[in-house]
Design a protein around this nucleic acid. Structure first.
Lengths: 203, 203
DNA sequence: GTAGAACTTGCAGAGTGTGCAACAATTCCT
DNA sequence: AGGAATTGTTGCACACTCTGCAAGTTCTAC
Protein backbone atom coordinates (compact mmCIF):
# COMPACT_ATOMS: atom_id res chain seq x y z
CA UNK A 1 0.00 0.00 0.00
CA UNK A 2 2.17 2.83 -1.25
CA UNK A 3 0.90 5.83 0.66
CA UNK A 4 1.79 9.11 -0.99
CA UNK A 5 2.82 10.91 2.18
CA UNK A 6 4.49 8.43 4.47
CA UNK A 7 8.03 9.14 5.56
CA UNK A 8 9.33 6.67 3.06
CA UNK A 9 7.74 8.30 0.04
CA UNK A 10 8.76 11.77 1.10
CA UNK A 11 12.36 10.66 1.39
CA UNK A 12 12.13 8.94 -1.95
CA UNK A 13 10.87 12.06 -3.67
CA UNK A 14 13.54 14.11 -1.94
CA UNK A 15 16.30 11.76 -3.03
CA UNK A 16 15.03 11.94 -6.58
CA UNK A 17 15.08 15.73 -6.46
CA UNK A 18 18.57 15.67 -4.96
CA UNK A 19 19.96 13.49 -7.70
CA UNK A 20 18.30 15.55 -10.42
CA UNK A 21 19.59 18.79 -8.92
CA UNK A 22 23.09 17.40 -8.62
CA UNK A 23 23.04 16.11 -12.20
CA UNK A 24 21.80 19.37 -13.67
CA UNK A 25 24.19 21.48 -11.62
CA UNK A 26 27.21 19.38 -12.55
CA UNK A 27 26.19 19.23 -16.21
CA UNK A 28 25.89 23.01 -16.40
CA UNK A 29 29.20 23.43 -14.63
CA UNK A 30 31.35 20.94 -16.52
CA UNK A 31 29.35 19.87 -19.56
CA UNK A 32 27.21 16.75 -19.79
CA UNK A 33 29.88 14.46 -21.21
CA UNK A 34 32.50 15.55 -18.70
CA UNK A 35 30.61 14.23 -15.71
CA UNK A 36 30.09 10.66 -14.51
CA UNK A 37 27.45 8.84 -12.56
CA UNK A 38 29.96 8.55 -9.72
CA UNK A 39 30.25 12.34 -9.56
CA UNK A 40 26.50 12.84 -9.56
CA UNK A 41 25.88 10.24 -6.87
CA UNK A 42 28.63 11.68 -4.70
CA UNK A 43 27.18 15.17 -5.08
CA UNK A 44 23.71 13.87 -4.22
CA UNK A 45 24.97 11.83 -1.29
CA UNK A 46 23.96 8.39 -2.48
CA UNK A 47 25.81 5.38 -3.82
CA UNK A 48 26.28 4.99 -7.57
CA UNK A 49 24.14 1.88 -7.37
CA UNK A 50 21.28 3.87 -5.89
CA UNK A 51 21.50 6.34 -8.75
CA UNK A 52 20.34 3.59 -11.08
CA UNK A 53 17.44 2.79 -8.77
CA UNK A 54 16.07 6.23 -9.53
CA UNK A 55 17.12 6.85 -13.12
CA UNK A 56 17.83 4.45 -15.97
CA UNK A 57 20.72 6.57 -17.22
CA UNK A 58 22.55 9.87 -16.97
CA UNK A 59 20.28 11.61 -19.49
CA UNK A 60 17.12 10.92 -17.52
CA UNK A 61 18.67 12.37 -14.38
CA UNK A 62 19.33 15.71 -16.08
CA UNK A 63 15.96 16.08 -17.80
CA UNK A 64 13.06 17.35 -15.72
CA UNK A 65 10.03 15.44 -14.42
CA UNK A 66 7.72 12.88 -15.94
CA UNK A 67 6.32 13.39 -19.41
CA UNK A 68 2.80 12.08 -19.53
CA UNK A 69 -0.56 13.72 -19.84
CA UNK A 70 -2.15 13.86 -16.36
CA UNK A 71 -5.10 11.53 -15.98
CA UNK A 72 -7.57 14.18 -14.87
CA UNK A 73 -6.97 16.64 -17.67
CA UNK A 74 -7.13 13.90 -20.26
CA UNK A 75 -10.47 12.60 -18.97
CA UNK A 76 -11.94 16.08 -18.97
CA UNK A 77 -10.77 16.54 -22.56
CA UNK A 78 -12.10 13.20 -23.75
CA UNK A 79 -15.59 13.60 -22.39
CA UNK A 80 -16.22 16.72 -24.43
CA UNK A 81 -17.06 14.40 -27.29
CA UNK A 82 -16.44 14.55 -30.99
CA UNK A 83 -16.05 17.85 -32.79
CA UNK A 84 -14.41 19.41 -35.81
CA UNK A 85 -10.61 18.90 -35.81
CA UNK A 86 -10.09 22.65 -35.50
CA UNK A 87 -12.00 22.67 -32.27
CA UNK A 88 -10.25 19.58 -30.97
CA UNK A 89 -6.93 21.26 -31.64
CA UNK A 90 -8.05 24.38 -29.80
CA UNK A 91 -9.04 22.21 -26.84
CA UNK A 92 -5.68 20.48 -26.99
CA UNK A 93 -3.92 23.80 -26.73
CA UNK A 94 -6.04 24.65 -23.71
CA UNK A 95 -5.14 21.27 -22.25
CA UNK A 96 -1.41 21.82 -22.64
CA UNK A 97 -1.65 25.34 -21.31
CA UNK A 98 -3.42 24.11 -18.20
CA UNK A 99 -0.86 21.36 -17.75
CA UNK A 100 1.92 23.92 -17.99
CA UNK A 101 0.19 26.19 -15.49
CA UNK A 102 -0.09 23.29 -13.04
CA UNK A 103 3.47 22.06 -13.41
CA UNK A 104 4.91 25.56 -13.34
CA UNK A 105 8.29 24.81 -14.88
CA UNK A 106 11.18 27.03 -13.83
CA UNK A 107 12.59 29.22 -16.55
CA UNK A 108 16.14 28.91 -15.25
CA UNK A 109 15.98 25.16 -15.36
CA UNK A 110 14.37 25.01 -18.79
CA UNK A 111 16.92 27.40 -20.14
CA UNK A 112 19.72 25.20 -18.82
CA UNK A 113 18.18 22.05 -20.21
CA UNK A 114 17.64 23.46 -23.70
CA UNK A 115 21.15 24.88 -23.71
CA UNK A 116 22.57 21.50 -22.75
CA UNK A 117 20.63 19.67 -25.45
CA UNK A 118 22.08 22.03 -28.02
CA UNK A 119 25.63 20.82 -27.45
CA UNK A 120 25.03 17.24 -26.37
CA UNK A 121 23.34 14.98 -28.93
CA UNK A 122 22.66 12.20 -26.44
CA UNK A 123 20.73 14.61 -24.27
CA UNK A 124 18.83 15.96 -27.26
CA UNK A 125 17.84 12.44 -28.26
CA UNK A 126 16.58 11.72 -24.76
CA UNK A 127 14.52 14.88 -24.68
CA UNK A 128 13.03 14.17 -28.07
CA UNK A 129 12.06 10.72 -26.85
CA UNK A 130 10.24 12.32 -23.91
CA UNK A 131 8.37 14.72 -26.15
CA UNK A 132 7.44 11.80 -28.35
CA UNK A 133 6.09 9.83 -25.43
CA UNK A 134 4.09 12.86 -24.38
CA UNK A 135 2.80 13.22 -27.92
CA UNK A 136 1.66 9.62 -27.95
CA UNK A 137 -0.34 10.07 -24.78
CA UNK A 138 -1.99 13.11 -26.36
CA UNK A 139 -2.76 11.16 -29.51
CA UNK A 140 -4.36 8.46 -27.40
CA UNK A 141 -6.63 10.97 -25.70
CA UNK A 142 -7.63 12.43 -29.07
CA UNK A 143 -8.32 8.96 -30.40
CA UNK A 144 -10.58 8.17 -27.46
CA UNK A 145 -12.45 11.41 -27.88
CA UNK A 146 -12.96 10.87 -31.60
CA UNK A 147 -13.49 7.13 -31.17
CA UNK A 148 -10.71 6.22 -33.55
CA UNK A 149 -7.63 4.01 -33.32
CA UNK A 150 -4.80 5.57 -31.27
CA UNK A 151 -2.36 5.21 -34.15
CA UNK A 152 -4.81 6.63 -36.68
CA UNK A 153 -3.75 9.50 -38.87
CA UNK A 154 -6.00 12.22 -37.49
CA UNK A 155 -5.12 11.68 -33.82
CA UNK A 156 -1.44 11.43 -34.69
CA UNK A 157 -1.43 14.61 -36.74
CA UNK A 158 -3.46 16.61 -34.24
CA UNK A 159 -1.20 15.54 -31.40
CA UNK A 160 1.83 16.45 -33.47
CA UNK A 161 0.41 19.90 -34.18
CA UNK A 162 -0.40 20.59 -30.56
CA UNK A 163 2.93 19.38 -29.31
CA UNK A 164 4.84 21.31 -31.94
CA UNK A 165 3.18 24.47 -30.71
CA UNK A 166 4.04 23.67 -27.13
CA UNK A 167 7.60 22.72 -27.93
CA UNK A 168 8.46 25.82 -29.93
CA UNK A 169 6.65 28.06 -27.48
CA UNK A 170 8.47 26.51 -24.55
CA UNK A 171 11.83 26.77 -26.22
CA UNK A 172 11.24 30.40 -27.10
CA UNK A 173 10.22 31.18 -23.55
CA UNK A 174 13.24 29.39 -22.13
CA UNK A 175 15.66 31.27 -24.36
CA UNK A 176 14.16 34.67 -23.63
CA UNK A 177 15.96 36.79 -21.05
CA UNK A 178 14.02 36.70 -17.82
CA UNK A 179 12.71 40.23 -17.31
CA UNK A 180 9.64 40.29 -15.15
CA UNK A 181 9.98 38.20 -12.04
CA UNK A 182 6.29 38.05 -11.25
CA UNK A 183 4.55 36.88 -14.41
CA UNK A 184 7.10 34.36 -15.59
CA UNK A 185 4.91 31.88 -17.40
CA UNK A 186 5.48 30.05 -20.69
CA UNK A 187 1.75 30.11 -21.41
CA UNK A 188 1.66 33.23 -23.62
CA UNK A 189 4.52 31.86 -25.68
CA UNK A 190 2.77 28.56 -26.27
CA UNK A 191 -0.46 30.31 -27.18
CA UNK A 192 1.42 32.53 -29.58
CA UNK A 193 2.99 29.53 -31.32
CA UNK A 194 -0.36 27.79 -31.53
CA UNK A 195 -1.93 30.88 -33.04
CA UNK A 196 0.91 31.24 -35.53
CA UNK A 197 0.60 27.62 -36.50
CA UNK A 198 -3.09 28.11 -37.14
CA UNK A 199 -2.62 31.18 -39.32
CA UNK A 200 0.20 29.53 -41.26
CA UNK A 201 -2.23 26.95 -42.60
CA UNK A 202 -5.28 29.11 -43.22
CA UNK A 203 -5.30 31.54 -46.15
CA UNK B 1 42.04 14.04 -52.38
CA UNK B 2 39.14 11.80 -51.62
CA UNK B 3 38.02 10.62 -55.02
CA UNK B 4 34.51 9.23 -55.03
CA UNK B 5 35.19 6.16 -57.12
CA UNK B 6 38.68 4.93 -56.32
CA UNK B 7 39.04 1.39 -55.08
CA UNK B 8 39.43 2.68 -51.54
CA UNK B 9 36.15 4.55 -51.45
CA UNK B 10 34.23 1.76 -53.06
CA UNK B 11 35.49 -0.63 -50.41
CA UNK B 12 34.65 1.88 -47.71
CA UNK B 13 31.09 2.22 -48.92
CA UNK B 14 30.78 -1.53 -49.17
CA UNK B 15 32.06 -2.05 -45.64
CA UNK B 16 29.58 0.49 -44.37
CA UNK B 17 26.77 -1.32 -46.14
CA UNK B 18 27.98 -4.65 -44.78
CA UNK B 19 27.99 -3.45 -41.21
CA UNK B 20 24.58 -1.86 -41.56
CA UNK B 21 23.13 -4.99 -43.11
CA UNK B 22 24.63 -7.18 -40.40
CA UNK B 23 23.33 -4.89 -37.66
CA UNK B 24 19.82 -4.76 -39.05
CA UNK B 25 19.68 -8.47 -39.72
CA UNK B 26 20.88 -9.40 -36.25
CA UNK B 27 18.59 -6.87 -34.60
CA UNK B 28 15.56 -8.25 -36.40
CA UNK B 29 16.59 -11.77 -35.53
CA UNK B 30 17.43 -11.41 -31.84
CA UNK B 31 16.19 -7.97 -30.77
CA UNK B 32 18.27 -4.85 -30.60
CA UNK B 33 19.31 -5.18 -26.98
CA UNK B 34 20.25 -8.84 -27.31
CA UNK B 35 23.04 -8.20 -29.77
CA UNK B 36 26.49 -6.72 -29.19
CA UNK B 37 28.95 -4.78 -31.28
CA UNK B 38 31.16 -7.86 -31.26
CA UNK B 39 28.39 -9.89 -32.90
CA UNK B 40 27.74 -7.26 -35.54
CA UNK B 41 31.40 -6.88 -36.41
CA UNK B 42 31.88 -10.62 -36.60
CA UNK B 43 28.86 -10.93 -38.91
CA UNK B 44 30.18 -8.11 -41.08
CA UNK B 45 33.70 -9.51 -41.13
CA UNK B 46 35.51 -6.63 -39.48
CA UNK B 47 37.09 -6.07 -36.11
CA UNK B 48 35.02 -4.47 -33.33
CA UNK B 49 37.36 -1.51 -33.39
CA UNK B 50 36.62 -0.95 -37.07
CA UNK B 51 32.91 -0.90 -36.31
CA UNK B 52 33.45 2.33 -34.38
CA UNK B 53 35.35 3.82 -37.30
CA UNK B 54 32.14 3.66 -39.29
CA UNK B 55 29.42 4.23 -36.70
CA UNK B 56 29.48 6.10 -33.40
CA UNK B 57 27.24 3.52 -31.74
CA UNK B 58 25.00 0.53 -32.22
CA UNK B 59 21.92 2.63 -32.92
CA UNK B 60 23.50 4.44 -35.86
CA UNK B 61 24.49 1.13 -37.44
CA UNK B 62 20.91 -0.10 -37.50
CA UNK B 63 19.29 3.09 -38.78
CA UNK B 64 19.44 3.77 -42.52
CA UNK B 65 21.52 6.34 -44.37
CA UNK B 66 22.36 9.96 -43.75
CA UNK B 67 19.62 12.37 -42.77
CA UNK B 68 20.30 15.73 -44.33
CA UNK B 69 18.57 17.70 -47.02
CA UNK B 70 20.58 17.26 -50.27
CA UNK B 71 22.42 20.41 -51.33
CA UNK B 72 20.92 20.56 -54.79
CA UNK B 73 17.28 20.27 -53.84
CA UNK B 74 17.71 22.83 -51.09
CA UNK B 75 19.29 25.37 -53.44
CA UNK B 76 16.50 24.91 -55.96
CA UNK B 77 13.96 25.45 -53.22
CA UNK B 78 15.64 28.53 -51.82
CA UNK B 79 15.94 30.41 -55.09
CA UNK B 80 12.21 30.40 -55.64
CA UNK B 81 12.09 33.42 -53.38
CA UNK B 82 9.63 34.56 -50.77
CA UNK B 83 5.97 33.56 -50.91
CA UNK B 84 2.96 32.97 -48.72
CA UNK B 85 3.67 30.33 -46.03
CA UNK B 86 1.06 28.02 -47.53
CA UNK B 87 2.92 28.03 -50.79
CA UNK B 88 6.25 27.52 -49.09
CA UNK B 89 4.79 24.55 -47.31
CA UNK B 90 3.51 23.11 -50.57
CA UNK B 91 6.99 23.51 -52.05
CA UNK B 92 8.46 21.80 -49.03
CA UNK B 93 6.22 18.82 -49.56
CA UNK B 94 7.36 18.69 -53.18
CA UNK B 95 10.93 18.85 -51.96
CA UNK B 96 10.53 15.95 -49.57
CA UNK B 97 8.68 13.91 -52.16
CA UNK B 98 11.48 14.41 -54.64
CA UNK B 99 14.06 13.50 -52.02
CA UNK B 100 12.15 10.31 -51.26
CA UNK B 101 11.90 9.46 -54.93
CA UNK B 102 15.66 9.88 -55.30
CA UNK B 103 16.62 7.89 -52.23
CA UNK B 104 14.09 5.14 -52.96
CA UNK B 105 13.91 3.61 -49.49
CA UNK B 106 13.09 -0.07 -49.28
CA UNK B 107 9.77 -0.88 -47.70
CA UNK B 108 11.08 -4.04 -46.08
CA UNK B 109 13.88 -2.17 -44.40
CA UNK B 110 11.69 0.70 -43.27
CA UNK B 111 9.19 -1.72 -41.87
CA UNK B 112 11.90 -3.46 -39.88
CA UNK B 113 13.32 -0.19 -38.59
CA UNK B 114 9.97 1.18 -37.44
CA UNK B 115 9.11 -2.14 -35.81
CA UNK B 116 12.42 -2.13 -33.95
CA UNK B 117 11.96 1.41 -32.71
CA UNK B 118 8.61 0.42 -31.27
CA UNK B 119 10.16 -1.99 -28.79
CA UNK B 120 13.55 -0.39 -28.22
CA UNK B 121 13.51 3.10 -26.68
CA UNK B 122 17.18 3.74 -27.39
CA UNK B 123 16.60 3.12 -31.06
CA UNK B 124 13.52 5.32 -31.07
CA UNK B 125 15.50 8.14 -29.48
CA UNK B 126 18.21 7.80 -32.11
CA UNK B 127 15.69 7.89 -34.94
CA UNK B 128 13.95 10.92 -33.48
CA UNK B 129 17.30 12.66 -33.27
CA UNK B 130 17.83 11.97 -36.96
CA UNK B 131 14.44 13.33 -37.90
CA UNK B 132 15.19 16.38 -35.80
CA UNK B 133 18.46 16.97 -37.57
CA UNK B 134 16.66 16.64 -40.89
CA UNK B 135 14.02 19.07 -39.71
CA UNK B 136 16.68 21.58 -38.77
CA UNK B 137 18.23 21.46 -42.20
CA UNK B 138 14.77 22.06 -43.68
CA UNK B 139 14.19 24.99 -41.34
CA UNK B 140 17.48 26.46 -42.45
CA UNK B 141 16.49 26.27 -46.10
CA UNK B 142 13.14 27.91 -45.34
CA UNK B 143 14.90 30.63 -43.37
CA UNK B 144 17.22 31.37 -46.26
CA UNK B 145 14.34 31.51 -48.69
CA UNK B 146 12.32 33.85 -46.49
CA UNK B 147 15.42 35.76 -45.39
CA UNK B 148 14.80 35.14 -41.72
CA UNK B 149 16.84 33.71 -38.88
CA UNK B 150 17.20 29.88 -39.02
CA UNK B 151 15.78 29.54 -35.51
CA UNK B 152 12.89 31.90 -36.19
CA UNK B 153 9.37 30.77 -35.47
CA UNK B 154 8.02 30.61 -39.00
CA UNK B 155 10.85 28.50 -40.46
CA UNK B 156 10.76 26.21 -37.43
CA UNK B 157 7.02 25.68 -37.62
CA UNK B 158 6.94 25.19 -41.37
CA UNK B 159 9.74 22.65 -41.18
CA UNK B 160 7.94 20.87 -38.37
CA UNK B 161 4.75 20.71 -40.42
CA UNK B 162 6.48 19.36 -43.49
CA UNK B 163 8.43 16.78 -41.58
CA UNK B 164 5.40 15.65 -39.61
CA UNK B 165 3.65 14.92 -42.87
CA UNK B 166 6.65 12.99 -44.17
CA UNK B 167 7.11 11.08 -40.94
CA UNK B 168 3.52 9.93 -40.58
CA UNK B 169 3.25 9.17 -44.27
CA UNK B 170 6.43 7.13 -44.20
CA UNK B 171 5.40 5.20 -41.14
CA UNK B 172 2.03 4.43 -42.62
CA UNK B 173 3.63 3.22 -45.82
CA UNK B 174 6.11 1.09 -43.92
CA UNK B 175 3.43 -0.60 -41.84
CA UNK B 176 1.19 -1.35 -44.82
CA UNK B 177 1.31 -4.85 -46.21
CA UNK B 178 3.29 -4.82 -49.42
CA UNK B 179 0.80 -5.66 -52.15
CA UNK B 180 1.91 -4.30 -55.48
CA UNK B 181 5.52 -5.07 -56.26
CA UNK B 182 5.88 -2.54 -59.01
CA UNK B 183 4.65 0.78 -57.65
CA UNK B 184 6.05 0.51 -54.17
CA UNK B 185 6.66 4.12 -53.34
CA UNK B 186 5.99 6.04 -50.11
CA UNK B 187 5.23 9.19 -52.10
CA UNK B 188 1.43 8.85 -52.22
CA UNK B 189 1.35 8.23 -48.50
CA UNK B 190 3.36 11.34 -47.75
CA UNK B 191 1.21 13.42 -50.06
CA UNK B 192 -1.88 12.07 -48.40
CA UNK B 193 -0.62 13.03 -44.95
CA UNK B 194 0.34 16.49 -46.17
CA UNK B 195 -3.09 16.95 -47.68
CA UNK B 196 -4.77 15.74 -44.52
CA UNK B 197 -2.69 18.10 -42.44
CA UNK B 198 -3.82 20.96 -44.63
CA UNK B 199 -7.52 20.11 -44.51
CA UNK B 200 -7.52 19.46 -40.77
CA UNK B 201 -7.22 23.14 -40.07
CA UNK B 202 -9.43 24.60 -42.77
CA UNK B 203 -13.15 24.66 -42.05
C1' DG C 1 58.61 1.96 -57.39
C1' DT C 2 58.54 4.43 -53.64
C1' DA C 3 56.84 8.01 -50.25
C1' DG C 4 52.94 9.33 -48.01
C1' DA C 5 48.16 9.07 -47.06
C1' DA C 6 44.39 6.35 -45.44
C1' DC C 7 42.45 2.13 -43.31
C1' DT C 8 42.46 -1.78 -39.97
C1' DT C 9 43.39 -3.80 -35.86
C1' DG C 10 44.71 -4.93 -30.93
C1' DC C 11 45.24 -3.28 -26.50
C1' DA C 12 44.49 -0.75 -22.42
C1' DG C 13 41.39 1.79 -19.79
C1' DA C 14 37.48 4.69 -18.22
C1' DG C 15 32.60 4.58 -17.91
C1' DT C 16 27.71 2.58 -18.22
C1' DG C 17 24.22 -0.37 -16.62
C1' DT C 18 22.33 -4.90 -14.38
C1' DG C 19 21.62 -8.96 -11.34
C1' DC C 20 22.28 -10.58 -6.95
C1' DA C 21 22.52 -10.87 -2.10
C1' DA C 22 23.32 -8.87 2.30
C1' DC C 23 22.00 -5.28 5.25
C1' DA C 24 19.14 -1.39 7.09
C1' DA C 25 15.08 1.22 7.58
C1' DT C 26 10.05 1.81 7.54
C1' DT C 27 5.52 0.13 7.79
C1' DC C 28 1.94 -2.95 9.14
C1' DC C 29 -0.51 -5.72 12.24
C1' DT C 30 -1.77 -7.28 16.67
C1' DA D 1 5.19 -1.62 21.90
C1' DG D 2 7.11 -5.34 19.30
C1' DG D 3 7.96 -8.60 15.77
C1' DA D 4 7.22 -9.77 10.86
C1' DA D 5 6.78 -8.22 6.26
C1' DT D 6 7.87 -4.86 2.99
C1' DT D 7 10.82 -1.69 0.82
C1' DG D 8 15.12 0.82 0.10
C1' DT D 9 20.35 1.04 0.04
C1' DT D 10 24.63 -0.57 -0.93
C1' DG D 11 28.77 -3.32 -2.57
C1' DC D 12 30.35 -6.59 -5.73
C1' DA D 13 30.98 -8.92 -9.92
C1' DC D 14 30.39 -8.78 -14.60
C1' DA D 15 29.22 -7.79 -19.52
C1' DC D 16 29.24 -4.23 -22.59
C1' DT D 17 30.23 0.51 -24.81
C1' DC D 18 33.38 3.65 -26.61
C1' DT D 19 38.00 6.17 -27.05
C1' DG D 20 43.01 7.07 -27.65
C1' DC D 21 47.11 5.32 -29.10
C1' DA D 22 50.44 2.80 -31.64
C1' DA D 23 51.54 -0.55 -34.50
C1' DG D 24 50.94 -2.81 -39.02
C1' DT D 25 48.81 -2.99 -43.63
C1' DT D 26 46.90 -1.39 -48.05
C1' DC D 27 46.01 1.93 -51.48
C1' DT D 28 47.24 6.33 -54.08
C1' DA D 29 49.99 9.62 -56.34
C1' DC D 30 53.89 11.14 -58.43
Amino acid sequence: MASTNGLRDRRRRQTRRDIHAAALWLAREHGFDKITVDMISAEAGVSPRTFFNYFPNKEAAVLPGPTELPEGLAAQFITRGAAHPREVLADLTQLLVRDLADNAPQRQEMHAVFALTRSHPALLAAMLARFDSFQRSIAEAVAQRLEQRPDGEVPTLLAALALTAMRTGLERWACEESQSEADDSPVPYVERSAELLRTLLTP
